[in-house]
Design a protein around this nucleic acid. Structure first.
Lengths: 222, 222
DNA sequence: GTCTATATATCGATAGAC
DNA sequence: GTCTATCGATATATAGAC
């Protein structure tokens, strides 16, 4: 606070800045890094800029505000999760595929726990950024397809079973992360296995899921 | 910045400040209010002080830092949740009590969603504040007792079933809150009902939970 | 046990030059 | 498309008076 006026440049050895057009992509990746390291609430535009060596104003050319960048991160997380699930759910009986998807879900949450947190617990989703709503549906679809096959084409029952399985898988994942932010490979595998077993149990006991016991429809489903 | 020296007091009509000894309690309640209104990440010591009309330094007499106060909030949340579950799980068959506990769990999450969030997703738990670890066990105990009874005293099986049910209930609760931060009564009841049905399904299909299929122990359990 | 005052830090976001 | 510079808010936490 009183430098006369000489000394035109501040930063040392930074003559080549960031003038290529990939700042947008780089911002998303850097945001992922920051979120993975310090958690989503601690992410800031300022820190992202700092890490990339750009001015704090630069990101605002690509994202209208902090939330927009986080939404992009969540979108990327959804892509990765769906990829992962699709990879894990290639073959086997419908029940086996549902169990495999459950395992994949829990493993993804553990392997990318901050990304996962951004995807599901951003607190600022679904409404403002509909892209995330669609992402949620895509994830559900991975479970829905085998459930549909398992239940011989009953849309309603498949939707109910899917909802229960996804909720269970999600619960296992969240509790795993909540208990230990950095779970070791062994506890991850144990949790994934438990979640898969719960999925199988839900399939076995699926008749309890049918119908919220409304007035009509007393006894007609097999 | 340049008031001469007269005018000894600033704040109008605040002659009686907060000199009773309940600031600690008041802080916890105010923190709950703030968290309920704006979410846990947005909570700050400064705002709590402001709402209580005390200086920003005052809270630090009672809580070493922000995290300590939030931990107290989480502890209170756990108390409330256990009370709620105990109230909901008084009578009925073991299976009915497990379903009732599940419903209570989801309803509590919806009715006190920010408190619930503080309890389970504070991100800074379990390790630094062991009180919260105990709280988690108390919550599990509400489910464990009927499960134990249901399974005729099999500790291991009861623990496995409890874990699956709690995870499922938790997943239903979290997904409900994530989809709609302010869910209406109807969707809360629907979610609670679905969660209870999932619990029943897990009970029905509980044989799938037994044993992570280790080498030994091939076929001996009923 | 609470206050005043302050040090220190960081953030989001914008204006305007280049 | 990026930079410089900055405004305005808000935060945590401490020191020392009362």
């Amino acid at each position: 606070m009183s430098e006369p006026s000489s000394r035109p440049r501040r930063r040392p050895a930074k003559r080549d800045r960031y003038h290529h057009g990939d700042l947008r992509t780089a911002l998303i990746q850097t945001a992922i890094d920051v979120v993975e390291e310090r958690g989503m609430p601690a992410f800031s535009m300022a820190e992202a800029s700092r890490r990339l060596g750009v001015a704090v104003a630069a990101p605002y050319r690509h994202f209208v505000d902090r939330e927009a960048l986080l939404a992009a991160v969540a979108g990327r997380a959804a892509e990765l999760l769906v990829e992962r699930l699709d990879r894990d759910v290639t073959s086997g009986s419908p029940a086996q595929r549902l169990a495999a998807a459950t395992r994949g879900y829990v493993r993804f949450a553990a392997d990318h726990h901050a990304l996962f947190q951004t995807l599901v617990a951003s607190g600022l989703n679904k409404t403002r950024h509909l892209e995330l709503h669609r992402a949620g549906q895509q994830i559900g679809a991975v479970f829905l397809s085998p459930a549909f096959e398992l239940l011989g084409g009953d849309h309603t029952a498949a939707a109910q079973l899917t909802a229960a399985i996804v909720a269970s898988a999600h619960g296992h994942a969240v509790l795993l992360l909540d208990d230990c932010p950095g779970p070791d490979q062994q506890s991850v595998e144990a949790a994934a296995q438990h979640a898969a077993q719960a999925t199988t149990a839900l399939i076995l006991g699926r008749e309890a899921l049918l119908g919220p016991t409304p007035k009509a429809m007393t006894a007609s489903n097999p």
